[in-house]
Design a protein around this nucleic acid. Structure first.
Length: 114
DNA sequence: ATTTTGACGACGT
DNA sequence: GACGTCGCCAAAA
């Protein structure tokens, strides 16, 4: 479970790793869940830094609130992020998740069922 | 040390 | 709904 002693970044990584296969969430949703609703940008920054983490973070499952793959240029290839998502059954077209409403996973709504 | 730049998002116009 | 502003705060310049 998340402890208050965990740093902001650690919380972001923790939540990101909880995203189920084939589901996605938004930076803002994560930020809100960890108690920093107005710091969505920091979540994005955390993702950018996620490759430094010991355990890999499924950063490809995190998009902005519109469901657009704004961070795809931060991945190796030009379409790696999209590839990974489509591999999980997510429909993507023009850098945007088509079935966003169905694959969206909000930790605030679904994680607190624990 | 100061300024700019973002994987963002909520609001106001 | 498109567009501009503002808040947010860590890095890089």
């Amino acid at each position: 479970m998340i402890k208050d002693s965990d740093s902001f970044f650690d919380k972001v990584y923790f939540v990101a790793r909880l995203i189920p296969f084939g589901r996605v969430t938004s930076y803002g949703a994560i930020a809100k869940y960890i108690g920093a609703s107005r710091s969505a940008r920091m979540v994005g920054w955390a993702m950018n830094n996620s490759h430094n983490q010991k355990e890999d973070v499924p950063a490809h499952r995190v998009v902005n609130r519109k469901g657009m793959l704004t961070g795809k240029n931060h991945f190796k290839g030009t379409n790696l992020m999209q590839q990974l998502l489509e591999n999980e059954g997510v429909i993507i077209e023009d850098n945007k998740i088509q079935n966003f409403n169905t694959v969206f996973w909000d930790p605030n709504n679904e994680l607190d069922i624990l």
